[in-house]
Computed example of a mutant assay.
Amino acid sequence: MGQVVTGVVVLDCAEPEKLATFYKEFLDAEESGATANRIEVRSADGLRLAFRRDANATPPSWPRPENSLQVHLDFLVDDLDEAERKVVALGGRPLETKDASGLFEERGYSDPAGHSFTLRRTTDPAPKQG
């Protein structure tokens, strides 16, 4: 078997154009490929996501137990509040808003098609100046 060079996380959704726009804006990514039923984006650090058209796609129901989590993405950010504002402005919504502060603080969200993802703090926040 040959070497696996890279992978792409593919999310099924009813409207790949809309979802690709959400992630392009959120990740400051570029579109790296598109067909009638699939759009791929690549972030500056090389993360590749694709969005495949599936008219019958059913988003996960997490945190409710029916239809469970299926899969979710983790994004590392240095400013949770700023990242949250960007997510919400782009059409995402908070799912789990309990504030577990500290070095490993994280918050749960869903994208406009209902796929869940987590924002995780990458560093311990420095005291605000001024």
Rank of each mutant, 00 (worst) to 15 (best):
M1F: 10
M1T: 11
Q3K: 15
Q3A: 13
V4W: 11
V4F: 14
V5E: 13
T6Y: 10
T6M: 07
V8T: 15
V8Y: 00
V10R: 08
V10Y: 05
V10P: 02
V10I: 13
D12E: 15
A14S: 11
A14V: 15
A14Y: 00
E17S: 14
E17Q: 15
K18N: 06
K18F: 04
A20E: 08
A20R: 07
T21L: 10
T21W: 02
T21E: 13
F22P: 03
F22H: 04
Y23T: 03
K24N: 09
K24F: 00
K24R: 15
F26L: 15
L27H: 05
L27I: 08
L27F: 04
A29M: 07
A29D: 09
E31H: 08
A34V: 02
T35M: 03
T35L: 04
T35F: 05
A36C: 04
N37V: 02
N37A: 09
N37K: 07
R38F: 14
R38E: 04
I39F: 06
I39K: 10
E40W: 01
S43Y: 08
S43N: 11
A44R: 14
A44D: 14
A44T: 14
D45Q: 11
D45I: 05
G46C: 08
L47N: 01
L47Q: 03
L47Y: 07
L47K: 00
R48S: 10
L49N: 01
A50C: 06
F51W: 02
R52M: 11
R52N: 08
R52D: 06
R52H: 11
R53C: 10
D54N: 15
A55D: 10
A55M: 05
A55K: 09
N56I: 00
A57H: 06
T58C: 07
P59S: 01
W62P: 05
W62G: 01
P63I: 02
R64T: 13
R64Q: 13
S68F: 08
S68C: 10
V71C: 14
L73I: 12
L73F: 07
L73G: 03
D74F: 12
D74H: 09
D74T: 13
F75G: 09
F75Q: 05
L76R: 11
D79I: 12
L80K: 02
E82G: 06
A83G: 06
K86L: 14
V88N: 05
V88G: 01
A89K: 12
A89C: 03
A89I: 03
G92I: 03
R93F: 08
P94F: 00
P94M: 09
L95G: 10
L95I: 13
E96Y: 13
E96A: 12
K98T: 11
D99H: 09
A100I: 10
G102W: 07
G102Y: 02
F104M: 09
E105A: 15
E106V: 03
R107Q: 13
R107T: 08
G108H: 01
Y109V: 02
Y109D: 06
S110F: 00
D111P: 03
P112D: 09
P112G: 04
S116Q: 10
S116H: 11
S116A: 15
F117R: 04
F117V: 01
F117L: 06
F117M: 04
F117N: 02
F117A: 00
F117D: 03
R121W: 01
R121K: 12
T122N: 12
T122S: 15
T123M: 12
D124L: 14
D124W: 12
P125N: 05
K128V: 12
Q129I: 05
Q129S: 13
G130D: 08
G130P: 01
